[in-house]
Every structure is written in structure tokens, then in C-alpha cells.
Amino acid sequence: MPWNRPLILGLLIALLALTWWRLQPQADEVRRSQFMMGTVVEILAQGEDPSALDEAVTAAFAEMARLDRLLSSHRQESDISRLSLSETGLTVATETAEVIALGLQVARRSAGAFDLTLGRLKTLWALDSDSPQVPSLAAITATLDDLGPEALMLSGRMVRKANPALQVDLGGIAKGYAVDRGIAVLKEHGVTAAAINAGGDMYLLGQRLERPWRIGIQHPRQPNAVLVTVQVSDRAVVTSGDYERFFEQNGKRYHHLFDPKSGFPAQGCRSVTIVAESVALADALATAVFVLGPLSGLEMLKGYSGAEGMIVAADGRLYASDGWAAYQVEP
């Protein structure tokens, strides 16, 4: 049966060709971490040319470091520190203005649950110090005077403070904004698949080896457990939880997500995860929803068409926005 000889030869050649083709575009990845913005920033970029990836990641880190210098409240020369020191306000960089504009917008739409002016309150609670304590009620109410979305006004690049003592604290949205810009730099360098994670503020660009990125969401009460997994592509994922930074006093947990109305940590949720188109927005929304609590939080999310959220309420019950199911992977 001589007919089968060319067939076998053909098949073997096809197999070899397949092997060669699969082996050729060896998808490479670059994974680098740096201390930045008070946390660890990790960039994972995928592509075919390691040196181009390396260059892109370096450029992204540089851009994020530049934004950190502009937006950090721990650096004296930053826009934010200068703003906090100034009496009436000043002109800031375009980027700073952009972040403040976003923060003010979320503050307005969350009826003040998200607030950029909590700097003094956070200093008072001193959650990052060696031995944080619950401040006196009088001290808390004193810091809450003249706060709120109206205390800070923006027109163009000009920021105005209603009260000289007002301390601006961008919180996570500065980190989120930096991640967004880092991603933009990676894209400019031709990277099509990457992840940037700045201490929980993350953006997932493109796909992870031919499937969407899979993100595990931390269980708010079991340190080593994942609550659910979501699959995303070209989306930001941010989780705000009461387990991130907290201390306990007299058996009560005091965490870092403050309710601007009471000056105490918000009580409605254990954790909130937001999937949105930008990290800065996702971070702001996660904080806002956390402070608002599950029901009002979901109500507010409806106003943001591109954003979906999942909430673990204080009693452990799960709430999710209507479009959330599209992201969640069945366990």
C-alpha cells in the first residue's frame, strides 16, 4: 500500500511544523517589584521581546515614581503637601488637578461618603503608628468641622481651600491614578498584556496567556482564603477591606476606612471589590461604597455604567451589582 507513505510523511511534517510554530513565539514575561507610594508596586508584562518588555516596565515605573513625587502626602515638595500647607489654595500640576477632579466628582455623587479632605482625621487616628488608639470624641468632632466636598474647590488647575487647616488626603486614588498612568506607558511601548498591582490597586491589561486574567478576591475574615475569583481583561480591580489596616481596642476593630459623617471607621461592610475601567475610579468607588454600606453603595454604583461591585456586608452577607456575575468565575 504505497499510498500511505506520503500521508505519514505529511502528518509527521505537519506535527513538526506545529511543534516549531508553538515553540517559536515563546511568550516571555517580565515581573518586577519596587517599593513606591508606601506600598509594593508589582508590574508583570507579557510579550515576545524581553528587552522591549524590560524597557517598557522601566518606563512605567519611572512614570509612577514621577506621579508619586507629585501626589504623595509624605513628601514635602509634592503638590498635595504644598496644598495642605497653603492657606487658601494654589495652582497644581495637570495630573494633580485630574486626580482631585475625579475625587471631587465621586465625593459629590456619593453624598460625601468619599472625601478628599480627611487628612486631619487620619492623622488623629494615627493608624500607621506604633500604638494607635481611639481618639477622644471631642478631638474627632473638631477635625470634622468645615469638611466635606464643598471644602475643596477646583477650577482648571487652581485648587481652593475653604479652610486653611484643611489637609488633603488623596488616599488610594493617587495610587490608582499612578497605576492607570503606568498602564498607559506600557501601552505606549507596545505592551498588550500586563498587570500592575500597587498594594491591591490593580489593572489587568489584555490577557494572561490566551485567557482573561483571573483575580482571586481575598476573604475578609480568613487570611489565606479566596472568597471568589473574577475573570477580567482591560479592567481595574480594587478591593477595600477592614482587614487591611486596623487595630483592636476593647474587642472592637478600628480600621482605616473612615466615615466622614461620624469620624469613626465605617460599619456597614467588611470588604468591597470594584471592577471598573480605571483604577483611580475603582479605588474611589470602593471606598465610597464601603462607607455608604451595601444598599446605598449599590444604589450609587448604578450611576457608574462601567463599574460593577461585590460587597461583603458587616454581617458576612454578599451583595453584588447587576453586572457583577459577568466577571465572577464559578468556583
Binding site: F35, G200, M202, I215, V226, V237, T239
Partner: peptide, 22 residues
Amino acid sequence: NRILVRIDGERKKDSPYDLLSR
């Protein structure tokens, strides 16, 4: 204290997620 500990290596196929959101 600027200590960063990372696990490097080939990724396991059965890993349920790529990154953890916390």
C-alpha cells in the same frame, strides 16, 4: 523595613488565580 519576598518559578497550571486582590 524594605523587605520584599517573592516566589519565582514556573507557574502551576492548577493555580486558581493569577493575582490576589486584597
